[in-house]
């Protein structure tokens, strides 16, 4: 009897320790990465980093203002493609689809989500860069936009499905048509979730490097326009990290730190927006 109790307590202690350890490792990785980024890149992180262009090789100082702006432009384009298609497609799947077609679409979007990002890059390269015969911001935005579609579509669909049937019935019992009920009740009820999903999605593609390597390419100066190549933070990190200059390495670390901070900020804002909603069901 006692031996059984001791055994149970021992197993309990071991399992508790194990789960705690794993949780600690998961958190530790992030803490380590952030700490190391700051340790290695903190010294180059100053006002110039956000306002100045990269300096020519051999000259120290300079910043990555063009890459920060470039990333913003590419992400804006990506959102213009990925958000409307994903959102409206998700509304269709959740509210109007029958059974067969949504199944096919859902399956396809899951596959699209699994396509390696570099393949998406090749696709955008073939579709836009090759015919135009030069790299462009547009191509980079399209590559990231394509990557956003499956996740924004599925998250929109999931959040709409989570809206209780009773709410749709409530609206229709008051004389609203199905479309009216969706527009005025169902979508607003799911809006916080949908917006959060889209912001997290945006944060995820913000760090994508591979599809940008041969679409938006890179640029050491301000990009002259949407049709021209542009620097972006992830590609800048890649270029600077593999360069043989000590100063560039430090700047790559700084860029990594900035990128991570931006993603982190978006995450926090999105989650706050989700939990602070005025009409959250209690």
């Amino acid at each position: 009897m006692d031996r059984l109790l001791i055994r149970r307590k021992a197993v309990n202690a071991v399992m508790l320790g194990l789960t705690g350890l794993c949780a600690l490792i998961a958190v530790g990785v992030l803490v380590f990465i952030v700490g190391y980024l700051f340790y290695s890149g903190g010294s180059s992180l100053n006002w110039n980093f956000f306002t100045k262009l990269p300096t020519p090789v051999g000259e120290s100082g300079g910043g990555m203002a063009n890459a920060i702006l470039g990333s913003a432009k590419v992400l804006l384009l990506a959102s213009l493609i990925g958000v409307p298609i994903g959102f409206l497609g998700g509304v269709y799947l959740a509210e109007f689809g029958g059974t067969t077609f949504p199944f096919v679409v859902r399956y396809m979007t899951d596959l699209l989500n699994g396509v390696p990002s570099i393949v998406i890059g090749i696709f955008a390269f073939t579709l836009i860069v090759l015919p135009q015969k030069h790299f462009s911001t547009l191509a980079g935005g399209m590559a990231l936009g394509l990557m956003m579609i499956p996740i924004s579509l599925r998250s929109t669909e999931e959040f709409l499905r989570a809206v209780p049937v009773s709410m749709r019935e409530g609206a229709m019992a008051l004389g609203a048509t199905k479309t009216r009920a969706i527009v005025t009740v169902v979508v607003p009820a799911a809006m916080q979730g949908i917006v959060t999903g889209i912001m997290l999605n945006l944060a995820r593609v913000a760090g994508e490097t591979a599809p940008l390597l041969f679409t938006s390419f890179g640029n050491r100066f301000w990009s002259p326009g949407w049709g021209q190549p542009t620097a972006t933070l992830p590609v800048m990190i890649f270029t600077y990290a593999i360069a043989p200059y000590e100063d560039w390495h430090r700047q790559a670390w700084s860029a990594g730190f900035v990128l991570l901070s931006l993603v982190f900020a978006v995450n926090v804002i999105a989650r706050l927006a989700l939990s602070r909603g005025g009409h959250q069901r209690r």
Partner: peptide
């Protein structure tokens, strides 16, 4: 449905203000 109203088993207020909930049917 305007002539024959319905109230459900579980209260199903919309994620809107109290006023907008009551006004919903009128607006629709």
């Amino acid at each position: 449905r305007r002539r024959v109203g319905m109230v459900f088993q579980r209260s199903n207020p919309f994620p809107k203000s109290i006023f907008d909930n009551v006004a919903y049917g009128l607006r629709v």
